Amino acid sequence: MDLRQLEYFVAVAEEQNFTRAAQRVHISQSGVSAQIRRLEKELGAELFDRSARAAELTAAGKAALEHARNALAAAGAVGQAVGEITGLLRGNLNIGMVIGCTVTPLFDALAGFHRAHLGVELSLREDNSDRLVDEVRTGTLDLALIGAESAPEGLETLTILSEPLIAAVPGGHELAGRAIALRELAAHPVVCMPPGTGLRAVFDRACAARGVEPVIALQASAAGAIADLALRGLGVAILSESMAAEHPGLTALPITDATDPALLAITWRPEANVAAREMIRHCRRAFRIDSGTTPDTLP
């Protein structure tokens, strides 16, 4: 048997489908099937029950799965150890980014990492912060840029931005020009981010702590969409300070009793691989963050 066969075996086991596994490992379905057959022939046992709709593991397959994963991890560790010595990184680096958050320094960090480590294949995808954190915990993602109400427990975190929530309204709005409390805000329709995002978590927690039930009129994942909806009189926008500052047509209103800040942060597992930690180094440089410091605003 070889590592390629073990990789295909693990992919089919995890995807429970030969077609999806083939897409994951970037070869044809027939190629995956052929390699699995060869592995089964060598082991003298069928690894999958092909009579079921899904590709379900047989007893032999279940017994083999963890060992196959360990073998692949060990092979990866060998390459990683050599990479640390030679300065050459290879493999994949999977990065997540919260939806609707275009943060140029992150892209600068990605570009710098790519130039320095051409042997590493980068992937970047968007999702809401809750799901990104879950995928970092499980190892699906190596690191992620998230919005959060606090640093995720059990993960390492590099805080990019920490600032209070604000309400934002067009210049002619009755609330314009003064600070407001959450109870006063609740008398107006609100436009905010959906559940699963850091800003929404901070807003919901502040409202719950004061027994306030706001009317969520509209939700959008991008700050620009929230601002545009508020500019058209469809509700009071709930944004961070820097988000509101990007939209000069809106007037920012401090919320006097929403004191907990919202965080924009990069998070990763304590046991993150060398490539992930190298990417963190590039992020520190791109965001101009020294160890132990946090910027007041994004560059």
Rank of each mutant, 00 (worst) to 15 (best):
A181V: 12
L124D: 10
G61A: 02
E163W: 03
D134R: 12
H188Q: 08
A209P: 01
A60R: 01
Q29Y: 10
D2V: 06
Q219D: 09
A179P: 05
L43Q: 06
L231I: 01
S28M: 13
Q23H: 13
L298K: 15
V32T: 13
H67V: 12
G83L: 04
V103I: 14
E135Y: 05
L231K: 02
G235L: 03
A245D: 05
R38N: 03
P299F: 15
A244V: 02
A286K: 02
E241R: 05
P105L: 15
P254F: 00
A63M: 06
T157N: 02
A54M: 12
I226F: 05
H173W: 08
A45K: 01
N70A: 13
Q5P: 13
E149M: 02
A144H: 05
L263I: 06
Q23A: 14
P170F: 01
L39K: 03
I216C: 03
G96Q: 04
A168W: 09
T58N: 01
S30T: 15
G91Y: 00
E84L: 09
S240N: 10
T157K: 03
L253A: 11
G91W: 03
L88N: 13
T157Q: 00
G154L: 02
A68G: 12
K62A: 15
F18W: 11
E246C: 10
L155D: 00
F107H: 14
